[in-house]
Simulated scan of single mutants.
Amino acid sequence: MPTLSQPFVASLARALNTAQVPCVLWGHCLLGLHGVPSIVGSIDFVISDDCLKAGAEALAQCKGLVPCPDPQSCPATSNERHSQPPVFHAHLDDGLEVTAGLYFQSDTLWFLPRLDDSILFPASSADLPPYFALASDQFRPGRGAGVFKSATDAVVALRSHALLEAYMRLYARDQGKRVGSFGMAMIAYIQLYVDADGFLDADLLPEPFRKFYRELQEGKKPIRQWMLELKAALGVEEEDPESDS
């Protein structure tokens, strides 16, 4: 689909940055950047919680996007999803099955410093914190979209070790809920398609994530025990699995 091209994704990031909304690539496009196979169903960005109004207004003005025709019944915001729904989304005007969405940082990357103006239009990855890189740098062509071919528009993305930490935190937080299995599936994908191909430096993971990822690789510990110990290490309380049914 032409509008899912890298220039189109970059145009959305440019619109957000121009509106002074720092953003980080998320979801299917981010997986594709890391070479993880994914059926692209959305173009997503993480933004600071207090930038939602400006971010939504910026996307609403983007050529190629149209408002959601029925937010109440839209699959993008359905409770049946196996991943978190966006806090705002619009649809591509050439097919309502594909969306562009915004996610709160407090729901996704809460463990990182607040996204601020320092990541607006960086000239290179060297200008970014060590857990970010430009989508045109530090990545590889591979399964999925691969590296962005142009650095003209600065699209900020998570490096692989930061993405793995995010999914480990999301799994620990959401285990026992409907969306909980999503985090573990993403951890497995990174292990299979990124780490196995030599594109993950697990030594960059902070503790206790480095230790727990090593244990997961070794496969000597039952997953439930591993999960409970991870939650305990992060101070996440075990929840009733019926609570989100």
Rank of each mutant, 00 (worst) to 15 (best):
R114D: 09
D116F: 08
S118N: 12
S118H: 13
I119D: 08
I119N: 07
F121R: 14
P122D: 06
A123I: 03
S124G: 10
S125H: 08
S125I: 10
D127Y: 04
D127E: 14
D127A: 15
L128F: 06
P130T: 06
Y131W: 15
F132P: 01
A133W: 08
A133V: 10
A133K: 07
L134N: 03
A135C: 11
A135P: 00
S136C: 13
D137L: 00
Q138D: 15
Q138W: 07
F139L: 03
R140P: 00
R140F: 15
P141G: 02
G144P: 05
A145Q: 12
A145V: 11
G146V: 01
G146L: 02
V147Q: 15
F148W: 08
F148N: 00
K149M: 09
A151I: 00
T152C: 08
T152M: 11
T152L: 14
T152W: 08
D153H: 10
D153M: 05
D153T: 15
A154K: 09
A154P: 08
V155N: 03
V155C: 06
V155E: 06
L158H: 02
L158E: 07
R159P: 01
S160E: 15
A162W: 09
A162I: 04
A162Y: 09
L164H: 05
E165D: 10
Y167A: 03
M168N: 03
L170Q: 13
A172F: 10
A172G: 09
R173C: 07
Q175K: 12
Q175A: 15
G176T: 01
R178T: 13
R178K: 15
